[in-house]
């Protein structure tokens, strides 16, 4: 098929840029570990309260400067909903839900996950700055959806 010379140039440039973008995000994901949250762990949504670690939700120290933050989402709250994290901590956040789908977004950060019944979702972030973050539910879950929130404080450790 005949294609105008300029259109060839344009498509070469356009498709080339698409592949550059794909390479950047591919390398970032597979080589540097910046995968989107895909925990693949399953859980019985009706037995969340009995299943570790969600039977005792909260922040747990797992190593030198390494932590696990286990959070249970349910209509329309996160447990716990006031969290303190020491500055510099590398925190793996695990979330699951007891009922419908919820979102888990730490506003203004890359922490953004879908929380679906039957699954644990997980994301790791290092908190290098002190400050306050708001966690909001960003997936519609019912009448109180916009009230569903939690607070994270990153504090200087003593």
């Amino acid at each position: 098929m005949h294609i105008h010379k300029y259109e060839k140039i344009w498509l070469f440039f356009g498709i080339g840029s698409l592949f550059v973008f794909l390479t950047i995000i591919g390398v970032s994901a597979f080589a540097q570990g910046n995968q989107p949250p895909s925990c693949l762990t399953t859980i019985d949504p009706e037995k969340v309260d009995e299943t570790p670690p969600f039977n005792k939700p909260g922040l747990v120290k797992t190593g030198d400067n390494e932590y696990q933050l286990n959070i249970v989402a349910s209509a329309f709250a996160y447990t716990p909903n006031q969290i303190e994290i020491p500055k510099g901590a590398k925190v793996t956040i695990n979330v699951t839900t007891k009922d419908v789908i919820h979102g888990f977004e730490m506003a203004g950060t890359n922490v953004n996950m879908m929380v679906e019944p039957g699954y644990v979702n997980s994301f790791t972030k290092t908190f290098n700055k002190t400050g306050q973050y708001t966690i909001v539910c960003n997936e519609y879950c019912g009448a109180g959806h916009h009230m569903m929130t939690a607070k994270v404080k990153v504090v200087n450790k003593q």
């Binding site: 977004e105 506003a107 306050q132 973050y133 708001t134 909001v136 959806h145 929130t149």
Partner: peptide
């Protein structure tokens, strides 16, 4: 967030 009614999320400075 999208799909949310008005909320200040407990007067969160971000919201």
């Amino acid at each position: 967030p999208r799909r949310s009614a008005f909320s200040t999320y407990g007067n969160s400075p971000q919201a």
